[in-house]
Structure formats: C-alpha cells, structure tokens
C-alpha cells in the first residue's frame, strides 16, 4: 500500500468498532459497559435527530418525545400484557411513527422553520402532562418500573451486544437514507427549493417519509432503552437530555454523518467521567462545547476535515 492510499478515517472507524466489539471480552467492566450502552442509545437519538434537522432541514425539537413515546408504549405493553418485548419494541416504534407523523409531520408541512420548532416542542411538552393524567397506566411522575427485560436472565454483556448491533443497524439505515433518493431530495430542496420542485421533487412526500423514518427509528431506540433500564419516567423528557442530545449534534457537525455519533462519544463519556468534578460537570462540558464550536463551527466533522487537509498537504509536500 502506498502512502497516498492510506485512509486514516477508515482505519480509525475499523479500530473504533473493533475496540467496542472486543471491550466486553478484553476488560468488561460492567459500569463502563453501561456507559457504552448509553452511548449507543444516545448516538442513535442524536443521529436520527440530525437526519431530520441537519439533512432534511426540518427544525424539529421534539425528538426526545419521539424517543419517550416508543419507550413508554413498549414498556406498557410488555408490562401490562406480558407480550414479548421484541414485539412491543416494534409496536412502540410504530406508535411513535404514527403519532409523530400525524401530529407533527402533517402540520409541519404547512409550517416553516421556527414554527415547526415550536410545534414539535409543544408536542413533546404535552407528554409529561399526558403522563401524569394517565397515572394508572404510565405511572405518572413516578414513572414506569419493573419493565420486563428483553429475555429472562439477560446479562450486561448480552445487553451490550444487542445495543451494539442496534447501533450498527440503525446507523447503516441512516447512512442508506442519506444516500438514497430521499437524501438527494433534501439536499436539492435545501439548495434551491423552487428548482427542486420543478425537477419533480415532491416536497411533502419526502418530508413525511423522513418524519416517519426518524420517529420509527427513534421510537425503537426508546424501546430498547427502557427494556434495558427496566424503567422510564418523565425525567427523560426534562431539559437535560434534550440539551445533551442537541449538544451531540452541534458538536459532531449538523448535517454531517456520522457527526452526531462523535458528538455522543464526547458528551456521554464526558458526562460520566466529569462526574468527578461534581457540580462543575455541566459547566466544564459547556466550556468544551463552546471551545469546539468556536474553533470549528462545523463541529468535530470540520475538525476531521481540517486534519484531512493537513495530511493532504503533507502528502503533496512529500511527493515533491
């Protein structure tokens, strides 16, 4: 292999995935495995969000709500009816898809920018109220507990690998969507809406499609999350998870794949390991985010582009 063929990004991805795949057998600290699972889940939430916001240009702020709906539906069904959690997770995804597409997606077609943001935020904001009003099923403010696990006798290692596979599968789906005709339609609509439409792009259809995809995938992720944790409560819908997920997107690079995953690495692991700093944790994290955005407004993906251009220059100077 020549020096010019060397693609450090591919190698970094392979090494990263290899490390994740081997971690439980190499070291296997159950606490760190738990953090990894949180990382898988939040990376998916943020990546789906990024698909909707960064790629489709739809300013949805309700994605944690889509996540919670999937989680609650799945948890309630599994707990109340004793159905297989796998089926419940799927139904949770469908439930999230139907409600989000109906109550946010369709109205959003008639709205633009900031108004979609408000609408989706209101949608997510009504959920805690609905939850307290339906206390008998949802557990209200106390939350839903003793949600059955995916299967009897599941261990941390099982959960780790299940969520890792979920992570890989959903990221692959997102990648495929970005590179499908739907992804092309969004870039076209963002670049020049009128021209895209006169070339046959059906804006409404593509927007509804992406709402359906994103809410389904986010809902499913919510399902896996609650069956792993065993409980869910309205605090999921509090401001902190919301801000952290937004920060993952911002830090990774909005509209860049897999930016949100990189953002999630920093936020999830940063958030855990900065616990040592106590109350200063969020402040330190905030400072880190500010620093990255200040130097690289395009987030970590822009930082990677920058390294790339450096390497490119090195190569050309070596060649001459």
């Amino acid at each position: 292999m020549k020096l010019t063929d060397f693609n450090w990004k591919k190698i970094a991805i392979i090494l990263g995935l290899l490390f994740i795949a081997l971690y439980p057998v190499m070291h296997g600290d159950t606490y760190i495995m738990h953090i990894f699972i949180l990382f898988f889940v939040w990376a998916l939430v943020a990546s789906n969000w990024n698909l909707l916001m960064g790629y489709a240009g739809i300013f949805s702020l309700g994605n944690i709500g889509y996540f919670a709906i999937g989680g609650y539906i799945s948890g309630i069904l599994a707990k109340s009816f004793g159905w297989s959690p796998w089926i419940c997770i799927f139904l949770g995804g469908i439930g999230s898809m139907v409600s989000v597409t109906l109550f946010v997606g369709l109205p959003a077609l008639r709205l633009s920018g900031i108004y979609i943001a408000l609408l989706s935020l209101i949608f997510a904001d009504t959920l805690p109220t609905i939850l307290t009003q339906t206390r008998s099923v949802t557990g209200g403010a106390m939350g839903l507990h003793d949600i059955p696990p995916l299967f009897e006798g599941i261990t941390r290692i099982h959960s780790y690998y299940i969520n890792f596979v979920l992570f890989l599968v959903i990221l692959t789906i997102i990648y495929k969507i970005i590179h499908s005709s739907t992804g092309l339609a969004f870039v076209a609509l963002r670049d020049s809406k009128d021209f895209a439409k006169t070339l046959g792009v059906n804006e409404y259809k593509e927007k509804i499609k992406v709402f359906a995809y994103v809410s389904f995938l986010t809902g499913i992720t919510g399902g896996f999350y609650v069956h792993y944790l065993g409980d869910i409560s309205p605090t999921t819908l509090a401001i902190e998870p919301f801000l952290l997920a937004i920060a993952m997107m911002e830090m990774g690079g909005i509209g860049r794949f897999p930016g949100a995953v990189l953002g999630a690495v920093i936020i999830v692991f940063g958030n855990e390991f900065l616990r040592l700093a106590g109350t200063l944790r969020l402040a330190l994290l905030g400072a880190l985010i500010c620093a990255i955005i200040l130097f690289f407004p395009g987030g970590l993906m822009q930082f990677i582009d920058w390294i790339d251009s450096r390497i490119g220059r090195l190569k050309t100077s070596k060649a001459t």
Binding site: L184, V187, D191, S192, D194, F195, L199, V201
Partner: peptide, 15 residues
C-alpha cells in the same frame, strides 16, 4: 439555479 453543494452529476441525478 443549481444545487451548489452537489456535483454536476448529482444535479442531473435530481432531475
């Protein structure tokens, strides 16, 4: 009007 962030090929691909 073109799609500035896309290649010429992808501009035609939209159509």
């Amino acid at each position: 009007q073109t799609f500035p962030t896309l290649s010429v090929y992808d501009n035609l691909r939209v159509g």
